[in-house]
Design a protein around this nucleic acid. Structure first.
Length: 545
RNA sequence: GCGCCUGUAGCUCAAAUGGAUAGAGCAAUUGCCUUCUAAGCAAUAGGUUGGCCGUUCGAUUCGGCCCAGGCGCACCA
């Protein structure tokens, strides 16, 4: 795997900066931009502008000096064959213009190595654990969980593609208060099923499915004290099936009950106590999370002798590290954001770097039907489930839609648009580009030749398309840095758009055999990119539509 | 009251890490199929980026104060 051209160019810039002795004036990392407008070149850097103050010189003057040095550096490097020109433009931007030769070579690599050409080894096989969904087994998955599932799975795919050793994990809340209430809910519904009058409390699970579980429990003669576990197991099977149909698979289902049975919680407490971060007050045991930036200390062992939710979670996250994971990513709903500082505090208290725990807050999705938002209430069991969304719009649209907005932003999910097989629907727009390409490849009488003379691709739309293809690694990098796969959905739409524009203006199958070969190569390259991108999102790539 | 998210075209959203003339789709108007899939393409129109102040060579992006919406602030999970 070779260093990509952006890193190589950055290398040149760094060398040039070293010569001027100004490398250290930049506090932030050096990076290249891809200019929004192609008239500003293929890559751009703003270093000259950023150095202006420290050097007390006009940015353009600094830029000219730097370009001289960069050019000299480039002479010594293989890059000299690929950089056509370096120019100062605008307020003092240094813009790099690439030789088309570079584009042709990169495209050829993609044609020959396909998906493998696109992988990046940024992860160095580092073990990373992504924990997501982790819904209590007390009801079917809601759209909130569905979004977490789609985002988490795509993020895991991307990190894996970037060379991390990724594990997907679901933390299973299979004991405690909620399971007790679930058991009692079933018990009451069993009584109702045998025509007994009951007073069903508001905070119990109201959903219809409780009646079904009650029936099953009666058939199987489940003991009253086991009803909670029975119901949880029953619901968990439903959840697993839903996720499976959604294309999301976990490497590990981590049982809280199992954790409780082990000595992991007492062990973690022992360590915290030894370090002086645990104390007793008012009959309860408190974790001194305020020592690590939390607003206040938190109870971990209640005065009634039972743990709070935080206790097993401290041990659980400690255990994640003990299992060898170097980077932990948790996807949580927005209702948990207040919980971040205390969990990070526990990680720090146990002697680990809290920065190695990334919490991604996945904002809620509002489902729209007929232009109106659908109100939901989990407590009353009135909510749209993952199952319903899947049945209504299908897996492809569901996954794409849940990912296509910034994860930290609210998402409006319009069922009617997701269902629509029209241009309004971005999933179909991208898939259509793929199907169109496949159709051309099918009807071509000349065979795709991976050694075609790609230098025949000289039209603006052809060069634009290659450039767009080569932006892929930049996008994946951004997904990694932000821990958010949504930019990939934006990229795929842009790539498809660039393709559709090319398609509209130029014929692939022409009378000129060489040109046809080159263009077949171009669209095959595009196809590989779309297929790879959609695959990372968990969306299928139809060859016909 | 405190914390988090959000506010960009009529609607849904882009513009990662501050950057060059703020871009797409939908909706509206108008063109393009005897040629590889019209689920496509092109064109017109649409903007005080919620408001004010500040930092900066440069602010949709950062900071402060407001306004509006959503969600959290347990010895629940």
């Amino acid at each position: 795997m070779k260093e990509n051209i952006q890193d190589q160019i950055i290398g040149l810039v760094k060398e040039a900066l070293k010569e001027t002795g100004q490398a250290s004036s930049l506090t932030e990392e050096l990076y290249l931009d891809i200019p929004g407008a192609s008239r500003f070149g293929d890559f751009s850097t703003n270093v000259a502008l950023r150095l202006s103050k420290a050097l007390n010189k006009p940015p353009r003057e600094i830029a000219v000096d730097l370009i001289g040095r960069i050019n000299k550096q480039a002479e010594k490097s293989p890059l000299k064959n690929y950089i056509k020109e370096i120019k100062v433009e605008g307020a003092g931007f240094i813009n790099f213009y690439l030789e088309p030769k570079y584009l042709y070579q990169e495209l050829e690599v993609i044609l020959k190595k396909e998906k493998e050409a696109l992988r990046l080894d940024l992860g160095k096989n580092e073990p990373v654990l992504i924990e997501f969904v982790s819904a209590n087994p007390t009801g079917a998955l809601s759209v909130a969980h569905a979004r977490q599932a789609a985002v988490g799975d795509a993020l895991a795919n991307i990190l894996s593609f970037l060379g991390f050793k990724v594990s997907r994990e679901y933390y299973l809340n299979d004991e405690g208060n909620q399971i007790n209430i679930l058991g009692k809910s079933v018990e009451l519904r069993m009584k109702e099923n045998s025509a007994e009058k009951t007073d069903f409390p508001e905070n119990y699970y109201q959903g219809e499915y409780i009646y079904d579980i009650a029936k099953k429990a009666k058939e199987k003669k489940i003991k009253t004290e086991d009803l909670g576990d029975f119901a949880a197991k029953f619901i968990l099977d439903i959840i697993k099936k839903e996720l499976d149909d959604f294309g999301v698979r976990f490497d590990c289902w981590y049982s809280q009950k199992g954790l409780g049975k082990s000595d992991k919680i007492p062990k973690a407490f022992e360590l915290l106590k030894k370090k002086g971060f645990l104390y007793e007050q008012e009959g309860a045991l408190w974790f001194k999370s305020s020592a690590f930036g939390d607003d206040k200390d938190r109870v971990v062992l209640k005065s009634d002798g039972t743990y709070t939710y935080l206790a097993p979670d401290i041990a659980y996250h400690d255990d994640k590290y003990k299992r060898g994971f170097k980077w932990l990513i948790n996807l949580w709903g927005p209702d948990h954001h207040g919980y971040i500082s205390r969990l990070k505090a526990s990680v720090a208290a146990l002697g680990r770097d809290p920065a190695s725990l990334s919490i991604v807050i996945v904002q809620l999705a509002t489902i729209f039907r007929d232009g109106l938002p659908i109100q939901m209430s989990t407590r009353r069991g009135e909510y749209i489930t993952l199952r319903e969304v899947l049945d209504e719009v299908g897996r492809d649209a569901a996954r794409f839609f849940f990912i296509m907005r910034r994860t930290s932003s609210h998402l409006d999910f319009d069922l009617d648009v997701a269902k629509a097989q029209t241009s309004e629907n971005p999933v179909y727009y991208v898939q259509y580009a793929h199907a169109r390409i496949c159709s051309i490849l099918r009807s071509a009488t000349v065979k795709l030749n991976k050694n075609a003379d790609l230098a025949l691709l000289k039209e603006k739309e052809e060069l634009d398309l290659i450039k767009k293809i080569l932006q892929f690694s930049y996008i994946l990098n951004a997904c990694l840095k932000t821990q958010d796969p949504y930019m990939l959905t934006v990229y795929l739409q842009e790539l498809s758009e660039t393709f559709h524009k090319f398609y509209d203006l130029h014929r692939v199958l022409t009378d000129d055999a060489n040109l046809t070969q080159a263009r077949l190569g171009l669209i095959e390259g595009t196809r590989i990119l779309i297929a790879t991108g959609l695959d990372l999102l968990g969306v299928s790539t139809p060859e016909k539509m």
